[in-house]
């Protein structure tokens, strides 16, 4: 039988899915063990048990001076920035995408501009943002917005233009104005796309967030990672990295279920 026709059964599929994780864990444990036997003071690859202990401490024990649990503070600060930036981007790209996709005048006005704008590397703009908006929250949110809006806008505009011409003509024969076509024909059909766009953009959004926090901040997940880097606290860094991954995964999963629930007409297209 051809290789492309071999399909794993359910237990085999689950095992295969778990395999890369297990392999990484085993490889890490072995490497960590080798280094720690050579030098018990080694900080580079802490033992998994050390990481678990550190994680427990980070999640539950408050800081001695501020009496607050720093990890939760960092998490809330970072999530607020991330969700703020992503929400603003989503709204902006939705409005711009609808305008560009439906109105020829808006298309002439914006599409070239946005194509150029999306080529500007956002991280190169970070110094400018810090100068203009200061080192506070605004510059970090703006970096995320600048980083992901052009891409989302282009994709949404493309989706609007991909709505079959027949539907737009049909809506006109039913007496719909441009506004009603945008609101009742185009918008509902690109909302699922908006959600999948947000899911795709969250990766870059995290990247911009952590970069901005690393450069200038006093709270946040990225800030903390770069702070403890000075003490070579690999156990803290690894805990934070895993925690960020878990957060990203949960947000992605939430968006996926939302999309499935909110748009039953998409059926299997998601």
């Amino acid at each position: 039988m051809r290789l492309i026709n071999h399909i794993p059964g359910r237990p085999a599929a689950l095992l295969l899915a778990a395999l890369p994780f297990i392999m990484i864990f085993v490889a890490y444990s072995i490497a960590s063990d080798i280094r720690l036997t050579a030098n018990p003071q080694d900080k580079l690859l802490p033992a998994p048990t050390t990481i678990v202990e550190t994680a427990e401490r980070l999640f539950t024990v408050p800081d001695k001076r501020s009496k607050e649990i720093l990890l939760w503070n960092d998490t809330f600060a970072s999530l607020a920035r991330l969700l703020g930036g992503v929400t603003i981007s989503a709204m902006l790209s939705l409005a711009l995408g609808l305008a560009i996709g439906l109105l020829p005048y808006a298309r002439s006005l914006f599409s070239g501009f946005i194509a150029v704008l999306s080529m500007v590397p956002p991280l190169a703009l970070l110094p400018i943002l810090f100068i203009v908006f200061g080192l506070g929250e605004v510059s970090k949110v703006v970096l995320i917005v600048i980083g992901i809006t052009p891409f989302m806008t282009r994709d949404l505009a493309q989706r609007v233009m991909e709505i079959p011409k027949e539907q737009i003509v049909k809506a006109q024969t039913l007496g719909a104005s441009s506004w009603v076509i945008a609101l009742r024909v185009a918008l509902p059909q690109i909302l699922p796309r908006l959600i999948s766009n947000v899911r795709l953009s969250l990766g870059s959004a995290w990247l911009f967030l952590i970069a901005a926090e690393a450069v200038a901040s006093n709270v946040g997940l990225g800030y903390r990672i770069f702070l403890v880097r000075r003490y070579l606290a690999m156990d803290v860094i690894l805990t934070y990295v895993i925690w960020i991954t878990v957060l990203a995964f949960v947000i992605d999963w939430l968006l996926k279920s939302l999309s499935r629930r909110a748009f039953p007409w998409m059926e299997a297209n998601l």
């Binding site: 809506a171 039913l174 007496g175 719909a176 009603v180 609101l183 024909v185 007409w265």
Partner: peptide, 23 residues
């Protein structure tokens, strides 16, 4: 020719409501 995001019934109602403000 029909709107995929509306149910069959909503598609028919759309024929009357699309010329109203907000559709």
């Amino acid at each position: 020719s029909v709107f995929p995001h509306l149910t069959v019934r909503e598609n028919l109602i759309a024929a009357e409501s699309f010329d109203k403000p907000f559709g």
